[in-house]
Every structure is written in C-alpha cells, then in structure tokens.
Design a protein around this nucleic acid. Structure first.
Lengths: 331, 331
DNA sequence: GCCGTTTGCGAAAACATTTACGCATTTTTT
DNA sequence: AAAAAATGCGTAAATGTTTTCGCAAACGGC
C-alpha cells in the first residue's frame, strides 16, 4: 500500500486544522493544547505523514547531519583505526539524534573531490564537521568550515588549530617505544613510517638515544600489504634489524606475518611495536605490543566536543588523549 | 575573512543579472550563453557563492545522500566485514558524486531509533538506501522505503525481496567448510554461531554428513571477545572438539588466540574455518581459512545496483556473490 | 528587408515548511 | 464582575532555490 506522500497542507485539511497547528504539534514549541497535539501525532502515525525535510530545513536550518572527513590511506584495505574512531563518533552522535556521513579523502585527492567536500560545507548540507588531520586537504576543509562558521572539530594536530580539537601525543608514544627497545637491548631499529612521520620519528629516535641515521626507515604505506613487503625488504637489505616500530597495527600484522613465513621469530629475532592498539592488536598471535591511542575514545571525545560547539560554546580546550605503551607478546 | 553567506538574490544583484540566470549557470540546463555562464561561475568562485542546498532540494528534490543501515552486532568492537562493505559502497558512490551516511542498527534496537531511521526515509532526507539484512528491523525499514518508493537495495537474503539485492550463499559456504572437515578426518565439530544461523548451520551439517545433535553450538556473539570465550567454554566442556566453524573472522581470531594461550595447536588439535575473509584473515598467524564472501565486492555491487535503480531501472536481478572456501593455515 | 525561428534572459510561480502576528476564547487576578 | 493575562489556533509572510513562461533581440532563409 504505497501511500502517496502527504504535504502538510493536505494533511492539515484532512484533519480540519491549519498547517501551523500541524507544525506546532511536532515542533513542541509554540502554543498548542495537549489534546490536539496528541490527536495530530496519532493521525500522522496512521496516515504516515512526515514533514518534508528539505522544506523544514529551509525555513529553520537546523540539520542533524555531521560529516566526517578522514584520510584514506589505502583504498583497498580498511583502516581499523578509522573504523574504531567512527564507532566512537557514532555512538555519541546517535544519543543526540544526529547522523554521520563519512567522507574518505585520498591523500592526493583530485581537486574535484576536494571541491565537492567544500560545497557540502558551503551549501549548508552538513550541520557540523569532524576532520581527521591527514594532509593539506584536510587543512583546506578546516578553513572552509571556519570561514563559514560551520561547527568543526579537528582530530589530530593541525597547524593553527588551538581549540575544539582532540590530540594525541604520537611523539611521546614513539619515545616510549624507542626507550623500550633500548632498555631491552635492541641495537638495530627500523621504522616503518606512515606518511606524517616527523614527530613519531623524532620521538622514536629520542627514546632510542641513537642518531637518526642508524634507524632504517621504510615507507610510505600503511596497510597489511605494506607491512608484509617491508619485512621482505628488511630481510633482504637490513637483515641485522632486531626491532621495528610500525605506524599502524595493520602494518605490524603484515610485517609479522611475513616474518613468520620466513621463520623469523617474533619477538626473539625481531621485536615489534605498532601504533593504534585497535581491537585486532590484542587478539593477534602474537598479541601486538602497541602504542595505545584509544581510537574509540578519540571518536567519542570528538563527537562530544562537536556537540558542545554546536550548542554555542566557544574555544573549547583541546582534549588530550594520552598514549601509553602496551607491551604484549610481540616485543 | 569569514565572508557572509550570499543568497542567490544578493549574488545576482551584485552581478547585475537575474536569479534565474545564476541558477542556469550552474544547472547546465536551460538556455544561457556560454559567455555569461563562464562569467558567473568565475564570480562565484571569487565571491564564494554556493547555492543553499536546502532551498535547492526543496524545489528540485534530487539529493545525493545515500543511507546505509547495517546491523550492529557489537557496540564495542568494530565489524571488519561491514567496514569493508562500506569501502566498497563508498568507492562506487564517490564516482557518482554521492555521499554515504552510515546508520548502525542494534540488533534489538529501541523503537525510538527505528523511528528515527524511518523518518529519514519518509522525510526525503536520503535519496536512496542500502539495507544490510540483520533483523526484523531491517525488514521494517525495507518496507518503509518500498512504500515511499525510495530507491533501495538489500544486502543479504531478506524474505520477500526478489529484486534489487545482492545475496551470497552462506549455506553453501558452510557446506564447503563441513565437507572439508569431514574429508580431513575431523570428527567432533563445533559451530560458533552468530545469530542468523539457520542456513549456515544446515549447510554445515550437510557438509559434515552428521546429525545436528552431534555439532556443538555456541552463541550468539560475533566479536573477538566472544570467540575467545567460546574457546574457553569448549576447553572446559567439550574438550573432544577438533574442528570449528566461526561466524566471523573476528570470532576466529579470538578463538585461536584463546587456543594458543592454552597451548592448543591450530590446526593440528583444532582446525578452524571462519566466515567473511576480510583482509585481516590472510594476515593473521596462522592465516585463517575462511569462507570468502568478498565484502568489498558486495559493497560495490550494492552501490552499482542502487545507481541503476536511481536511474529508473526496475526489478534488477539479484546479484549473486558466490562464496568459496579459501584454505589457509588454520585448517 | 520581411517573416519565422532560435537564443538569452528576466519576472514570477512553485516547492513545503516554520513562525511572527493577530484574534477570539478561556483562565486568572483583583 | 470587570480587567488582565494566558491560551489555542488560523492567516500569511518568509526561507532560497528551480523552472515555466513570455518577451525582446538576434539570426536565418528568401
């Protein structure tokens, strides 16, 4: 029984009231008797009336759509870190009746894609945005939102962003990893870097107390496959390597898999520490030692800050997610 | 320089043309000289003019927002299967300039949540929907979309849905797993079921050629943790078990992890086969034998079918994703 | 040059809501 | 019991586009 879509006018006429009354019945502002409200709501359920959202948001532009822009590091393998952040975001947004739109942003996104993203913001399609820092692109989007006063929170360190953001100290995490390797007597470190690696690398080096030149660096790349290949590279060209820091859990899994395939023992021959500590990390075999970034938390914090921004709060202090090192079986 | 938002009227006045002309410049229909079009586009870039999307979609309701509703099996651990499906969907939608909104649907979703989802569809907030079958709820949403003639495609087998869907033969996959276990001489099977298990269970049993009663069944639950606990249960109460079929890769990882923690050897003592074959499966150690469902493909197919439905095609034949068994190290 | 067609563009009518305003009616206050 | 305030609801304006219609002007074929 495909009932045709009713307009408010038709629906109001059917009930013998005015459109204003119908509108009031749903908006819960304006003066209306409890009795008529109930009657209208009931009839609406019965006749399947539902206000046209486009008209509604035209006349009172309070949308509930939140956009997430995240760097797409790899278009073939899913990014577990992002997946968990999304869950954190969504679980919070859902409580406030808001919806999440997800927008991958390739690292080297064509101009056209970036333009579409900007239009989303400029056209008022989204009521708020969450931007995961990933490249210049994300920075442009941030400016775009800022200029149009669209509520916006940033995940990760972005130049010039001081408020309404959640950050984590990648560098410190890397430092902890480096120090751990040093304290456990490792001498030949390798670093499977992602692409935004300055801070991590620096921290790693500081922890190791070793000149940068002595660290084997391999990259870029973030996925399982990249990790797998990296191991092959190391086996061929840097066989003295005895510990590695990986930019993501996925890389570490790929790396370890390749190592095991070659009968390299983990952690005896090579100790591995990764970043992210996604759920998969602790169920991997061997369980991954990982710099714990708490992605779910990050997502939740971001969503909560956004909520506050949308409620008019200004200059909300950065939420700092501290990241410690969880030592498991891989190191 | 937070430029204020221009309306089409203000913008048109600034340029000394009518609103109709401005509109035509962007819509690329209607008669307009190439010269003025270019001029207007240029000025728009300069002044940062962008049409208000709400007004636009009110007068010509062709939105580009697609909603995905998927069962949320676990609100703490991410679902890799869904994550990969999303990637498949998004990679296709992006090519058509469409955006994806993601809506987790808890298995036992409160009425309120379901109502919000329905409103999305009824109010015209989304131009199309993709529904992953998961529970009665998903079925209700399907009806809702159908009644309002909102383009809709279903992933998975849903009662009464014959067209515009993509399906995979879970049962056959389970059959293959069962047969494999039988052929490799396993005698004491266990089945870590998800929640929609009838078909899988039947197939498994057929493959094993064994009465249902002889199969140890544990469930429900889908995540790492569930898999881990299941192993503990088996160790305590069903120690004769020598092969298990898991409803998801995550479960299998949790299961294997628990097994290794107890010095149970995989696959020698217990052979494990899982479902999904997400990226993680082949990088796990031991690499997971898995019923290959090709989640990325599923997502892509669904998006492509939706695209066709939105272009007016009717009764598109179901896309069948065949699912074979990939044998790796865990069995 | 003249008539018929095409082209470019402006005026104004949709599109479906929300909400400010105003007018009865009811309730409260004094 | 009269005045004041509050309540319930309808009328109409406003929201910012797209698009139909119509009117000039330009163009083409003789």
């Amino acid at each position: 029984m495909a009932s045709k879509k009713l307009t408010i006018k038709e629906f109001a006429e059917l009930l013998g009231v005015s459109t204003a009354t119908v509108s009031r019945a749903f908006s819960s502002k304006g003066r209306i008797s409890e009795k008529t409200r109930r009657h209208i709501i009931a009839k609406a359920g019965e006749l399947n009336y539902c206000a046209n959202i486009h008209a509604r948001s035209l006349s009172s532009p309070d949308s509930s759509l939140i956009a997430l822009y995240y760097p797409e590091l790899n278009s073939e393998e899913p990014d577990y870190f992002v997946a968990e952040i999304m869950m954190g975001i969504n679980s919070t947004l859902a409580k406030h009746g808001k919806n999440l739109q997800v927008n991958p942003l390739p690292l080297a996104a064509p101009e056209a894609i970036l333009k579409l993203c900007k239009e989303q913001i400029l056209s008022g399609a989204v009521a708020g945005v969450i931007i995961m820092y990933g490249s210049k692109n994300s920075q442009e989007l941030y400016k775009c939102a800022r200029d149009r006063a669209v509520p916006c929170v940033v995940i990760g360190r972005m130049e010039g962003v001081k408020y309404n953001n959640v950050i984590y100290d990648m560098r410190h995490g890397a430092f902890l990893a480096g120090r751990y390797f040093k304290n456990t007597g490792r001498k030949h470190p390798a670093y499977l870097r992602g692409h935004l690696d300055r801070n991590k690398q620096k921290g790693f080096q500081m922890g190791l107390e070793m000149p940068a030149a002595q660290i084997v660096k391999i990259g870029p790349g973030f996925g399982f496959r990249d990790g797998y290949h990296a191991m092959e590279l190391i086996a061929e060209k840097h066989s003295e390597t005895d510990c590695v820091l990986c930019a993501t859990d996925s890389m570490a899994m790929g790396f370890i898999k390749a190592a095991l395939d070659r009968k390299v023992r983990i952690p005896r021959d090579i100790a591995v520490i990764s970043y992210d500590d996604t759920c998969a990390a602790r169920y991997y075999a061997p369980a991954l030692s990982s710099v714990r970034l708490k992605p779910f938390e990050i997502g939740r914090s971001a969503a909560m800050i956004l909520e506050r921004v949308m409620n008019g709060e200004k200059n909300i202090q950065a939420e700092i997610i501290e990241c410690d090192l969880v030592v498991r079986e891989s190191s």
